[in-house]
């Protein structure tokens, strides 16, 4: 459920101007509406794109959050690579589709 929640927050930030306004006005109040873990809250507050990628956030959602926090495209790609170096392989979501068969 947790990956779903964090992706939903980012999806709504990407697509809903009202949610985006709340992000600018009172981010903490917005965050209270989503069931996020301590690690997820930290990653969101810090704009830690690398960790969010490792958690399993779909890049089609994540790239827009990266743009929202002011990252250029190359910074976005770099952040994900650094995330994998720091936190290990992606843990959940679409990019782990073959995880079972690999093992």
């Amino acid at each position: 459920m947790s990956l779903y929640c964090i992706q939903k927050l980012l999806y709504q930030l990407n697509r809903d101007p009202y949610t985006r306004q709340r992000y600018h006005d009172n981010f903490e109040s917005l965050l209270e509406e989503y069931e996020l873990t301590k690690e997820e809250l930290g990653a969101i507050r810090e704009g830690d794109i690398g960790l969010l990628y490792v958690m399993g956030v779909n890049g089609q959602i994540l790239m827009h959050y990266s743009a929202l926090i002011g990252q250029e495209w190359d910074e976005y790609i770099h952040a994900m690579k650094e995330g994998v170096k720091s936190h290990g392989p992606v843990r959940a979501g679409i990019y782990t589709l073959l995880k079972g068969s690999e093992s």
Binding site: Y53, N58, G59, Q60, L62, M63, Y76, I77, M80, K81, V84, Y95
Partner: peptide, 9 residues
């Protein structure tokens, strides 16, 4: 084939 929005972009 493509790996958009990922480190393999």
């Amino acid at each position: 084939s493509h790996w958009p929005c990922t480190p393999d972009s």
